[in-house]
Design a protein around this nucleic acid. Sequence first.
DNA 1: GCTTACCTACTCGGATAGAGCGTGTCCGAGTGTAGTGGG
DNA 2: CCCACTACACTCGGACACGCTCTATCCGAGTAGGTAAGC
Lengths: 172, 172
Amino acid sequence: MKLGEGVEAAIHCAAMLAGVEGEATLSGAAMAEAFGLSPSYLLKHLNMLSAARILESVSGPAGGYRLARSAERITLLDIVLAVEGREPAFRCGEIRQRGPAKLDASAYVKPCGINAAMLKAERAYRTALAEAKLSDIVSDFMSDADPRSVAASCAFVARHQRPQKSSSTKQA
Amino acid sequence: MKLGEGVEAAIHCAAMLAGVEGEATLSGAAMAEAFGLSPSYLLKHLNMLSAARILESVSGPAGGYRLARSAERITLLDIVLAVEGREPAFRCGEIRQRGPAKLDASAYVKPCGINAAMLKAERAYRTALAEAKLSDIVSDFMSDADPRSVAASCAFVARHQRPQKSSSTKQA
DNA sequence: GCTTACCTACTCGGATAGAGCGTGTCCGAGTGTAGTGGG
DNA sequence: CCCACTACACTCGGACACGCTCTATCCGAGTAGGTAAGC
């Protein structure tokens, strides 16, 4: 019962990408710098999000990542499943029928009750994750977090998103 | 997001131990045989359950394991936490404040919204697991499973539990 | 025949190797941009 | 002065080592029971 630490990075990046405007992108290197992570390794997780159709990637100069759809339609479950894989955490190995005195296969048509209970709990987990939309994460951050932190994040996005808005003032 | 397969073995063993009567015990070797597992490795997990005060172990001949309290008071959550560890699956590394432009610590007193959402989902998971009592697992198995499977399990327990009830007929 | 001491066999418990997966890093393919030469 | 070509710099994408956790195993410590000898 342990999630890879790439999940945290993926969610933070997705939340940051929710702040870019329109067709603009944010490069993986910029996000890695923002969170103090290894750029090469972050790319690995961002690539998984691209493969899951959560992010879009554009190559070349002024390239980077953007959300593939609105933050309203992206849930934490989407991100977690993309990074950690879709199979359930508890996999029933059917050890009940692996003993030396196993019965006929017809005695095991009913599903294992233990498996059912574990899967039910995991369904509750996924349901809670599916109810957490990325847009909620962002709006909660905007309203609840420290104003300095919000301002810093918005400034970072505005400075690194590309193509730069021509109207905005260029900062060093 | 992956649970070790020891969890499955631990739950099955606990369910089987719920079938022994009174002070009787079941040896780890017997349970390993019942499920086709390596005895030495199963001991490792059973030992964790003992350390968590879920099982009691008695040494020596006619020794083995028994439940430390009634199956009514043991939940799947107890077993999962004992085997997999008590720390949550999602550990917030606070990467939001690890970038090069981190603000004063006072800007991060509010908890991370992403961490809160993930922990909320995990609370739902644990709640569902805490509602699944071991006694429910056993009674559901007794009523729903194939009668042959139930009979085989009961026979196995009766044959291997020790000290043997003197009144029961000895089987080869 | 009863008691007692010893010995054996069986159990759990912790310490010890091996495999699989997540972590971290590197280099190559692709693309848009900027500069330069020619018309 | 305008256009086309070339070279470059920057991006993502996949292939390659390393470390750690989970898996699997072995051997030692401890204990209860059975056995045999002594009273």
